[in-house]
Simulated assay, not measured.
Amino acid sequence: MSNPPLIFIDGDQGTTGLLIHERLRDRKDLRILTLPAAERKDAQRRAEAINSADIALLCLPDAAAREAVALIENPRVRVIDASSAHRTSPGWVYGFPEMTPEQPQAIANAHRISNPGCYPTGAIALLRPLVQAGLVPADYPLSIHAVSGYSGGGRPQVEQYEGPEAASAAPFVLYGLGLQHKHPPEMQLHAGLTQRPIFLPAYGAFRQGIVLSIALQTRLLPAGSSLESLRAALQRHYAGARHVKVLDAEQSAATAQLDPTRHNGSNDMTLGVFGNPAEGHILLCAVFDNLGKGASGAAVQNLDLLLAAA
């Protein structure tokens, strides 16, 4: 009987790597390979490890992820990169299975998969179906706002909020004020936009979770675009999706606030369409775990697609 597939987690001590390891550690259908601390920066040992694997999960900074890919000589090795290094690169399949009906199969067949960013996951989930349906113009002047838990900043930010100086950590921080965040190109490409959206991120004094919102004005939308038609388009797109749910009209009316921690610890995401029809104002919202559907959960979902196709 052949051995289960060997999964190499490169960067298993980072926030995403630790959570992926935790999600996989009790699995009997695969074997996990990690390097001891003394060998993590040894190029030869990393090269041996990555070339011995069936699938490599890269949980690294962008530059280190590019270096890891350059070490691959074995054509059988398949890669899921959780960094932002390859999210807009030709030849890499975008690892958001719910993005299109064809995406799960594209991921299953791929040798190079780029895991989506946390913020782009919510923005693309909301926008791509609406742009493709012709309900939101591809050149709409979009402003995307999102608030994440502090874990989105990685270990330094976690230490700031959970370490000795936690009492002095800010309760809320708005950042990216120069509007040069790395995520807009990813959002633009995979949402099917022709113009770069404005993106303004923030984080609060909670560990994990995201609420992302996009405001629209019906006077700038095509005829037939309404709160109801946008909600219906999202419901059609995600009908039957295991991890993405769209609030119906009754659920939306009963929702007075959104808790960013609602899906913490899961790979689930909830989408909602709210607004004020009398004023022509529509609000698109996504709630999910930045460490789940926005990182480790999505990576394991993509891994399972690869394993099922093996």
Rank of each mutant, 00 (worst) to 15 (best):
K245C: 06
K28V: 12
L303D: 08
N115G: 02
I198E: 14
K28S: 15
L174V: 11
V69M: 08
F172N: 07
E279Q: 15
I124V: 15
A167V: 01
L6R: 09
E67D: 15
P197V: 01
Q208H: 14
R219A: 14
A138Q: 11
L216C: 01
I7V: 14
E98V: 06
K41M: 05
T15G: 05
S296C: 07
L200W: 01
H237T: 07
A202K: 03
R219G: 14
N267A: 14
A298P: 02
E228C: 03
A110E: 12
R87H: 04
L19S: 11
G224V: 09
G153A: 03
I50C: 11
Q235K: 04
A166D: 01
I55W: 12
V131T: 05
A125T: 14
D12N: 15
G176S: 05
V77F: 13
P101D: 07
L283T: 10
G280H: 03
Y150M: 04
L234Y: 11
A68K: 09
L60H: 14
D289I: 04
P156K: 11
S252L: 13
G209D: 00
A85T: 07
Q157D: 05
P137G: 08
D304M: 09
V147T: 15
P164A: 12
P36N: 11
N51R: 09
Y175T: 02
E186H: 02
L174R: 07
L127F: 07
I20S: 02
E98M: 13
L179W: 03
P120K: 08
S84N: 12
V69D: 03
A68W: 05
V158T: 08
F8Q: 12
P156G: 08
R262F: 06
E67T: 13
V173K: 03
K182S: 15
M99R: 10
D268E: 15
N115I: 01
L234T: 02
A202H: 10
R196D: 02
R196Y: 04
G272P: 00
A308D: 14
Y119F: 05
I113E: 13
A70M: 07
E279D: 14
A85K: 10
A82E: 01
A239M: 04
L221C: 09
N276D: 15
A47S: 14
A82I: 02
F288V: 01
A70P: 15
T121H: 06
Y161A: 11
G178F: 00
F206Y: 10
A65V: 02
L35R: 06
Q132K: 12
Q44R: 14
V273N: 08
H181T: 08
A38L: 12
A223K: 13
R196H: 08
A191H: 07
R76G: 12
